[in-house]
Amino acid sequence: MRDYASYSDSELIEKAKHGEDGAFGELVSRYEQQVAGTVKGMLGDNAAAEDVGQETFIRFYRSLEKFRGDSALGTYITRIAINLSLNEIKKQKKVISLFYSRDDEEKEFDVPEEKSHEDESDTKEIVDKALLALKPEFRSVVVLRMLHGYSTKEAASILNVPAGTILSRLARAQKELKKILEPLV
C-alpha cells in the first residue's frame, strides 16, 4: 500500500483528482479533527454532527475539480463544514418549531452550581452546552476564532461577513460564555 503521509495537500489533491482513493483518504485523516471541531462545536457531540462531518468530506470530494487553491485547504473544508452545520441547525429549528412552543426553545441554559469541576468529561459537557446555548451566528464565530484560532480576517472570509461583524459577535459571545461558564472559572 502506498504511503501518502509525505505528500503535500496540493499533491494529494492532484492524485485524488486522478482517482487515487488513498490520497483522498489521507486528506480525510489530515482534516478529520478540524472538521470534527467545527461540526461538533456547532451542533454538539452527537450523531447529527457525525453525519454532517461525513457530508463535509463528500461535498469536498465532489468539488475537488473546482478547488483552485485560492485559500488554504483547511479554510476551504472548514467553510463547507460551517455552511453545512448552519443548514443543519436551520433544519433542526424547523422540526423543533413544529413540535414545541417558542418558550421551550428559548429556555435558558442552566449550569449546575455545585458541580465538581475535577471531572474532565463534566467540563467538556458544560463547555459543549455553553457553546450550544449561543445563537448559531455567535457560535460560528467562537468556533472559528476561539476553537480553531482563525484570525478575524479569515473568519470573516469563511462566514462571508465583514470583519467588524466578527468582532462585535465575538465580544457578545465572550460575555455570554463568561456568564454561562462562571461556575467553572
Binding site: 478529520e32 470534527a36 462545536g41 462531518g53 468530506f57 467538556k124 476553537l147 472559572v185
Partner: peptide, 21 residues
C-alpha cells in the same frame, strides 16, 4: 476552556467517508 476542547469523530470515520465516496 473553549480552545482546549478537543473534538473527534467516532472510530472508523475515515472508512465510512471512503465508503460513501
Amino acid at each position: 476552556l473553549i480552545s482546549s476542547r478537543n473534538y473527534s469523530f467516532s472510530d472508523g470515520f475515515r472508512n465510512r467517508v471512503m465508503q460513501a465516496v
